[in-house]
Structure formats: C-alpha cells, structure tokens
C-alpha cells in the first residue's frame, strides 16, 4: 500500500503480539474468556455446514419420530441420542443453534456495517463542513434518539414490507431487517465521528494538508478517518451485541425472519411454546447461546473501550 512500508514484513505479527492492545487483551481475564466464547460461537456459526450433525432445515434429513428427544437421552422410538435434544419436528437443537447463530451473526454484522458506513459518512461530513448541514444532521439525529431504537426498527421494517410485493417478502426479509436495524443505529456512530472530526480537523497535521491545498475529500478519508476509527470500533463491537439482540427481539415478536430462515430469536420464539409442557431444552439452549454471544461481544466491547482509553492505562 505504502512506499514506505519496511521490507521486514514477518515482524508485523511479532509487533502485533507485542502491542499494548494485545498485551492488555492477554492480561485481562474477562477479555480472554469473552474472546474465547465469542470466537467459538462465531466459528461454530461460520462452519455450521461442516460441523452440525445434520442440516435441520433440510426436510430430507428430518424424522418426525425423533421429536421431543430430551438432551443426552436416547429417543424412545429411534434410540438416537442428541446432546441438546430435539424440538417438536425432530430437529437437533445443537444444529439449529449453529444455523441460527449463523443467521443472527450475519444480520448483526451486516446491520453494524450498514449503520457504521452511514454514521461515519454523515459524521465526517457534519463535523468537517459544520454550519447548517451539521445543524440539520444533528437535529435529525436528536429526533431519532427520542424514539426507542427497537420501535424505530419495527416501524422501518413495517413500512419497508409495505413497499415490497408479497412474493418477494420472504426472500427480502433478511435485507429489510438489516436495513431496519442499521437505520435505527447510525446516530451513535455519526455523533462520535462528528465530535472526533471536529477535534481532528483543527489539529495541525490537517492544517498542514490544507496549506498545500489537499482536496477536502482526501483530507477526510486519508487524514481524519484513520484517526477517528478507535472509538468507532468500540461502538461497533457493542453495537454488534445490540444488533444481535435487536434481531432476536424482532424475530421473537414475529416480525423478523420467517421460520424457514430461523435465527436465534426465531428459535426462542418457537421454544417458548414448549416451556410449560416440560420440553425446556427447546427454549433454554438457544436462549443460553444468545446470552453467551451477546454478553461476550458486549464484554469485549467494554474491554476495548478501556484498552483504547489512554487515561485508564
């Protein structure tokens, strides 16, 4: 990328390991445990087709006789044993969790990416331009902040569905959901980036670029953006946990993903119907997975915020 990157490339890994951030990670038990848990879940989700005992959404692999098998017990009819039991249709709960986490994580990452891109762009412009544009964008942000974001996501989701022909609704549901969650969450990024941009743009290195007449877009992208990314990463990490929960909430309420594309939220909605008839595992394990995922990502975000804060070092 750069003409001045040193030739001794192999040292990059060594340097990363030696960096203050890596050290802080290695010496923080909370960060380590959260990191391991989050990595395991993400790996499990990504590799679901490879490690899941079977694809729970392929009707060909399902046997209704396997339904309602409790965890670690042989099924009364088929004698099959499932670690985490099966649900009413005989789907292996462990497999549904892997596939569900896959959907949840995809929606979470995509929503965060969407919110981040939108928020960073608007924040950079507002902070750099200032004036009426800044005022307008920030008032919009203020207004949006007065609504609970889940309500906003519901609203956006509902309106968007109204515009989509019925035939495409199922296929488009996941994208609509991503946009809905992303749109309800850009404000934080925009505010933080705007504030940081206003600080950075007055620093002398930006003035030095302006003295030689560098183009404003170049100043924004090459000078300011890299220097405002620290806090953005923190928000993005915590935002990922929130997006996953938002998706689960919407799916739980039945307005999110269709049962053909279940996420952890959908699984929890299905499972809650069986809680009082004794089949607790159908609800408990997906819930535990969601909790572990959201909590570990959130704790990682907290750690990152502290680790990047020079005053707490």
């Amino acid at each position: 990328m750069s003409d001045f990157t040193p030739e001794d490339r192999p040292n990059a890994l060594r340097r990363a390991w030696d960096s203050d951030l890596a050290y802080s990670f290695r010496t923080s038990p909370v960060a380590l445990v959260s990191g391991v848990v989050a990595t395991l879940i993400i790996l499990g989700a990504v590799l679901a087709p490879l490690i899941a005992p079977h694809n729970p959404f392929d009707p060909a692999t399902l046997n209704l006789m396997d339904g309602f098998t409790p965890p670690m017990e042989p099924n009364a009819f088929t004698g099959n044993v499932y670690w985490l039991g099966t649900d009413n249709q005989g789907r292996d709960v462990f497999s549904t969790i892997l596939y569900g986490a896959r959907t949840s994580l995809f929606v979470g990452f995509a929503a965060v990416l969407f919110a981040m891109t939108l928020g960073i762009t608007l924040g950079l412009i507002a902070g750099f331009r200032g004036g009426w544009l800044d005022g307008l964008l920030m008032r919009v942000a203020d207004v949006q902040l007065t609504f609970p974001s889940i309500l906003l996501a519901l609203l956006i989701f509902g309106v968007a569905r109204g515009f989509i022909p019925a035939a495409y609704r199922e296929a488009m549901a996941i994208w609509v959901l991503i946009v809905a969650i992303g749109l309800s969450d850009w404000v934080q990024y925009a505010r933080v980036v705007r504030g940081a941009t206003m600080v950075e743009k007055n620093k002398e290195y930006v003035q030095a670029a302006r003295v030689i007449g560098a183009h404003p877009v170049k100043i924004l992208v090459r000078h300011i953006l890299p220097n405002v990314m620290g806090p953005v990463l923190v928000i993005a990490t915590i935002g990922l946990a929130l997006a996953i929960i938002a998706e689960a909430t919407l799916s739980f309420l039945g307005v999110g993903l269709p049962p053909t594309q279940p996420s952890l939220g959908t699984l929890i909605r299905i499972g809650q119907g069986f809680l009082f008839s004794g089949e607790w595992w159908i609800l408990a394990f997906p819930s535990a997975a969601l909790l572990a995922l959201a909590l570990s990502v959130n704790l990682l975000g907290d750690w990152l915020r502290d680790a990047l804060n020079p005053r707490l070092r």
């Binding site: 002398e204 003035q207 030095a208």
Partner: peptide
C-alpha cells in the same frame, strides 16, 4: 510557501509513516 507549526506532536498524522508525511506535498 509552506508552514511549520508549533506542536510537533499534533502536526504529524500519527497514523502515517514519516516517509508518507514528507512525501505528501
């Protein structure tokens, strides 16, 4: 014309290599 600033800790972009900084103009 060019300018030299007061604070050498703020006048160099911390994310750029020195070579890039000098090469920018």
């Amino acid at each position: 014309f060019q300018m030299i600033f007061q604070d050498p800790f703020a006048s160099l972009n911390p994310r750029w290599r020195v070579g890039e900084i000098i090469a920018e103009p």
